[in-house]
């Protein structure tokens, strides 16, 4: 029954994707992209991937829409030129599609419990999580401990993107809407009282919820990354309501950047401490003498915090880099 909803949502997603590609107006494309992300997130949820659904919603539908809009504001929203080399593109695309469809006929069916994927490594994760880590969210266990190195890499990717955006467009001094020469112009959404009131009411809840997602990640969907994105979303909301300059005066850009570096360092530092205590890199067992399980949990909490800090800091750095870029 539920699968049918999945089929339906995916069909909608395909239509939306075509809409994205065909939309002449880039703004419309971005809007449809947001819809696409929502549909994908819902599908992921139906496919039992709660953590992924949460992330896709926070990132795909939330942060990336905001980023794209900021970029559109700087680069213009109209697609002018028509597609080139359509034939070639179509050929390439068709060949790719045909190849993959050829391959799919022998793929294990969706949900087949006997597929190799379900047989080989996955059961071990459940056993070991129960035995060695003892937290209910196996995804978090895999993410933070069994494949914690990947997650460190992921944090570094985010950090790299932050560096990149700052390197490319962060150099200009924050001018634009908050500069003194344009002081008479309205800043943010200050002139729209209803939005301000409601928005400001929502911010504490979002922050609270972000902390919940952060620290409850071992028990329910969520974790450092989703929490970081939500935290960033709250601050972004504040920035949009009150103007970026005001937001930046509360959390200055250097602090944001220090957050994004510090979180990565926290994560890596945990790994190094494990080494110093005689274990392998990121081997949390050794953190607490005599209690490997407790040590695992401690390590997971610490590195999730690192992830959250980095993600929040970096996403905010990126957003403010776009938002304060001089538009002329």
């Amino acid at each position: 029954m539920i699968e049918l909803f999945g089929v339906f949502l995916l069909a909608l997603a395909v239509i939306t994707a075509i809409g994205v590609v065909q939309a002449r107006n880039l703004f419309a494309g971005v809007m449809l992209m947001g819809i696409f992300s929502l549909l994908m997130a819902a599908t992921f949820f139906l496919l039992d991937a709660a953590d992924v659904a949460l992330t896709e919603a926070a990132v795909g539908a939330g942060i990336s829409t905001v980023l794209m809009l900021s970029a559109l504001a700087l680069s213009g929203a109209e697609e002018k030129a028509r597609s080139r080399s359509r034939i070639l593109a179509l050929i390439v695309v068709t060949v790719t599609a045909a190849t993959v469809i050829y391959a799919t006929f022998e793929k294990p069916r969706l949900g087949d419990p006997n597929a190799p994927v379900q047989q080989h490594v996955a059961p071990w994760y459940f056993d070991m999580t129960q035995e060695a880590i003892e937290i209910p969210n196996v995804v978090t266990a895999v993410l933070s401990s069994f494949r914690g190195y990947d997650t460190l890499g992921e944090v570094i990717v985010v950090f790299t993107a932050g560096i990149g955006v700052l390197f490319l467009i962060g150099a200009a001094a924050p001018k634009g809407r908050a500069s003194p020469s344009q002081g008479d112009l309205p800043v943010g959404l200050k002139h729209h009282q209803p939005i301000r009131v409601v928005g400001k009411l929502a911010i504490p809840f979002i922050l609270l919820f972000a902390f919940y997602v952060q620290f409850h990640g071992e028990y329910s969907p969520g974790g450092g990354f989703q929490a970081g994105a939500l935290f960033a979303a709250a601050i972004i909301l504040y920035g949009m309501l009150e103007g970026e300059a005001t937001a930046l005066s509360i959390i200055p850009a250097p602090v944001l950047f220090a957050m994004s570096a510090g979180g990565a360092l926290l994560f890596g530092g945990v790994g190094v401490v494990c080494m110093l205590l005689g274990g392998n890199f990121l081997q949390y067992d050794v953190l607490l003498a005599g209690s490997p399980v407790g040590a695992q949990q401690m390590g997971i909490i610490a590195i999730e915090l690192g992830v959250g800090i980095t993600v929040a800091g970096t996403l905010l750095s990126i957003f403010f880099a776009f938002a304060t870029r001089d538009q002329s």
């Binding site: 209803p194 939005i195 409601v198």
Partner: peptide, 20 residues
Amino acid sequence: VLVAAFLLVTGPTAAYALAN
């Protein structure tokens, strides 16, 4: 309840803002 409250508050706000 939280979800409901949030929808209740944000829905009209968004509508207002959009119309505006």
